[in-house]
Amino acid sequence: MAKHVVARTAEIPPGGRKLVTVRGREIGIFNLDGEFFALFNRCPHQGAALCSGEIVSRLESALPGDYRLSRPGEMLRCPWHCWEFDIRTGQSWCEPNSVHARTFPVTTEPLVAETVDVTIAERYVVVTL
């Protein structure tokens, strides 16, 4: 396992995402209100490019006629068969116990990059893989 710097935090605003390739693997980096999450860009169902799917909320209801929108912008809907996955955990909504999208640990870390005459100190998104 190694750490890989994949983006500057400023590149992925809240609600945004970036597709990166780490050691040959496509990974989607998502920013949920300042927290970063990484999902393998491959749907556990039949392999679609999951991370290009629409970002949606969770529509919940205990009973018909009682509707609640929860977790706004925290679900990812697969572009092929519309299974929905929790961006935070990779858990699928339809079979949470058996179907998961693969996730990777993400941190943000301050790094210093020096060039000839400028020093840029910024936070970077780092994936462990």
Binding site: L59, E60, S61, Y67, C82, W83, E84, E95
Partner: peptide
């Protein structure tokens, strides 16, 4: 079909 359109019938929280 439900797996893909679950959000239309959110009260169906089980297969």
């Amino acid at each position: 079909t439900w797996r893909g359109v679950r959000s239309e019938v959110p009260w169906l929280a089980q297969l």
